[in-house]
Amino acid sequence: MTAPVAVVTGSDSGIGRATAVRLARLGMDVGVTWHTDRAGAERTATEVTDSGRRAAVEQVDLTRLPEAADVVDELADRLGGIDVLVNNAGTGTATPFTDIAPDTVRHVLDLDLVGPFLCGQRAARRMIAQGRGGRIVNVTSVHEHQPKVGAAPYCAAKGGLGLLTQVMALELAEHGILVNAVAPGEIATPMTGQEDTDVRTEPRPGVPLGRPGDAREVAEVIAFLAGGTNRYVTGASWTVDGGMTRMGPMAGSHLGDDSWRRV
């Protein structure tokens, strides 16, 4: 029997790499994408093959739309189909709302929202044609649910991706395609400047579990949503944040100064 195939965008490091490796250990062949870190993508592919699965690697710039979405079809062709898509590639900002340039807004929205939209279309069309269902997981952020100063386009994109997830879930359910979001909090990855950090040594008093998350902890949730044991979860957003988003009222009553108002 042919192994299921997963495509994980932005899987050259961080959550994407951890997810690719975890899905390989579930028995999936994995398509890996990278933008600037080819060496990182090759390391991911090596970890996939070390798990006994096939890997295929493609470079993509998800701001070059719509043609960038071709990568889904290219990887599906190389691996013999597609059963899982994980829209993981993304970027953010740390700029006050009044100072953000239009080009920056477009860049973030393309990479974090329009790119996943078009990749999701490509994957869904192939899954429907294959006739065996599928799984799509969109990696959003806690900022799908809560705002952050300095992250206006990022929050807009992630909030949009969260609601897009719900529409996709409704429309694709009849084809046996389950669509969910995973919303990480602070995770030790290159995006947060904490690659290869031992999260147990990084105190976070404002997080109930007291530390950042590890990329592998996010990958475990994605693996459940993408794997065969998930048969009845769709249209949901799974927050993986150590309880961070539950701290709203406590933060409001216990912060001692206005430093949160500035990037």
Results as ranks from 00 to 15, higher is better:
residue 2 T to Y: 06
residue 5 V to G: 05
residue 5 V to L: 08
residue 6 A to C: 05
residue 8 V to R: 01
residue 11 S to W: 00
residue 11 S to Q: 05
residue 13 S to F: 00
residue 13 S to E: 01
residue 15 I to N: 02
residue 15 I to E: 03
residue 24 A to G: 06
residue 26 L to Q: 14
residue 27 G to K: 07
residue 30 V to F: 02
residue 34 W to M: 02
residue 37 D to K: 04
residue 39 A to C: 06
residue 39 A to E: 15
residue 40 G to N: 07
residue 43 R to F: 00
residue 43 R to C: 01
residue 45 A to R: 01
residue 50 D to M: 00
residue 50 D to A: 15
residue 51 S to N: 06
residue 51 S to W: 01
residue 52 G to P: 00
residue 52 G to C: 06
residue 53 R to E: 02
residue 55 A to Q: 05
residue 56 A to K: 08
residue 57 V to A: 05
residue 59 Q to P: 05
residue 59 Q to C: 10
residue 62 L to D: 09
residue 63 T to Y: 04
residue 64 R to W: 02
residue 66 P to V: 08
residue 69 A to N: 03
residue 70 D to K: 03
residue 86 V to C: 08
residue 87 N to L: 04
residue 90 G to D: 10
residue 91 T to K: 07
residue 92 G to S: 14
residue 94 A to I: 08
residue 95 T to I: 15
residue 96 P to D: 15
residue 99 D to S: 14
residue 99 D to F: 04
residue 100 I to M: 11
residue 102 P to L: 13
residue 103 D to K: 14
residue 104 T to E: 15
residue 105 V to T: 12
residue 105 V to A: 09
residue 109 L to Y: 11
residue 110 D to K: 04
residue 116 P to R: 10
residue 118 L to Q: 14
residue 120 G to F: 04
residue 120 G to Q: 08
residue 121 Q to M: 13
residue 121 Q to W: 02
residue 123 A to H: 03
residue 129 A to H: 04
residue 131 G to W: 09
residue 133 G to T: 11
residue 133 G to V: 10
residue 133 G to Y: 09
residue 134 G to I: 14
residue 134 G to N: 11
residue 134 G to Q: 13
residue 135 R to Q: 12
residue 135 R to L: 03
residue 141 S to P: 03
residue 141 S to F: 01
residue 145 H to C: 03
residue 145 H to S: 12
residue 146 Q to E: 12
residue 149 V to L: 12
residue 150 G to F: 02
residue 150 G to E: 08
residue 151 A to D: 02
residue 152 A to D: 06
residue 152 A to G: 10
residue 152 A to E: 06
residue 152 A to N: 08
residue 153 P to L: 08
residue 157 A to L: 11
residue 159 G to N: 07
residue 161 L to A: 13
residue 164 L to K: 07
residue 165 T to F: 00
residue 166 Q to K: 15
residue 166 Q to P: 02
residue 167 V to H: 10
residue 170 L to K: 12
residue 170 L to S: 14
residue 172 L to S: 13
residue 176 G to A: 11
residue 177 I to F: 11
residue 177 I to W: 09
residue 177 I to L: 12
residue 178 L to G: 12
residue 179 V to E: 10
residue 179 V to M: 10
residue 181 A to P: 03
residue 181 A to I: 02
residue 182 V to G: 11
residue 183 A to T: 09
residue 188 A to W: 10
residue 189 T to S: 09
residue 191 M to I: 15
residue 191 M to R: 13
residue 193 G to M: 13
residue 196 D to K: 07
residue 197 T to R: 15
residue 197 T to Y: 12
residue 204 R to E: 11
residue 211 R to Y: 02
residue 211 R to C: 03
residue 212 P to F: 05
residue 215 A to S: 13
residue 217 E to C: 08
residue 218 V to T: 02
residue 218 V to F: 02
residue 221 V to L: 05
residue 222 I to M: 09
residue 223 A to D: 06
residue 224 F to M: 10
residue 225 L to N: 03
residue 227 G to I: 06
residue 231 R to W: 04
residue 232 Y to V: 15
residue 241 D to P: 04
residue 242 G to C: 08
residue 242 G to L: 05
residue 244 M to Y: 12
residue 244 M to H: 13
residue 252 G to I: 01
residue 254 H to Q: 09
residue 255 L to A: 15
residue 257 D to K: 06
residue 258 D to H: 13
